[in-house]
């Protein structure tokens, strides 16, 4: 039930909290972990030259770079704890990409923060958490900020 845990991360403090719990749970259950960072492609609205004149494509590059760093730093924490971990950087609409990743990894548990980097803390569930619920049937463990 807990053999393959997927942890979506975005570099936010709640995601770090989810990471800490994931390390503990994965250690206990000898689970394999997949870390996913999705570069939100709504940035492409900005990158569309017909929309705004300056070229904002560097935003996406910057985010990919940051994603790689966030993934590497988090993966190191898992490796140091002796947990088998792989990482994946994806581009697109965040909940849909997480959903696709969940399927690909044959995930048995999603472990994530209720709220990440964007949105209102007071809002019901974060929009990404809600979106993930819409895209998969896998059990999901929600960690509070």
């Amino acid at each position: 039930m807990l053999e393959r845990i997927l942890v979506p991360i975005d570099g936010s403090p709640p995601a770090a909290k989810a990471t800490t719990l994931a390390i503990e749970v994965a250690t206990r259950f000898k689970a394999e972990v997949r870390l996913v960072f999705v570069v939100d492609d709504s940035i492409h609205v900005l990158a569309e030259p017909s929309y705004v004149q300056p070229d904002y494509t560097f935003f996406a590059d910057k985010m990919r770079e940051e994603g790689e760093q966030v993934l590497a730093a988090a993966a190191k924490r898992f490796k140091d704890a002796g947990v088998k971990v792989t990482t994946q950087l994806r581009n697109g609409y965040v909940p849909a990409e997480i959903g696709a990743s969940v399927k690909e990894f044959k995930t048995t548990l999603i472990l994530m923060g209720t709220h990440g980097r964007t949105g209102w803390d007071r809002l019901v569930l974060g929009s990404v958490a809600q979106g993930v619920l819409a895209t998969t049937d896998v059990p999901i463990l929600l960690v509070r900020p």
């Binding site: 719990l21 998969t136 049937d137 896998v138 059990p139 999901i140 463990l141 929600l142 960690v143």
Partner: peptide, 12 residues
């Protein structure tokens, strides 16, 4: 913390 077990989770 809340763990939500999904309807249809058995199938998946």
């Amino acid at each position: 913390m809340v763990l939500i077990v999904r309807e249809g989770a058995a199938a998946s």
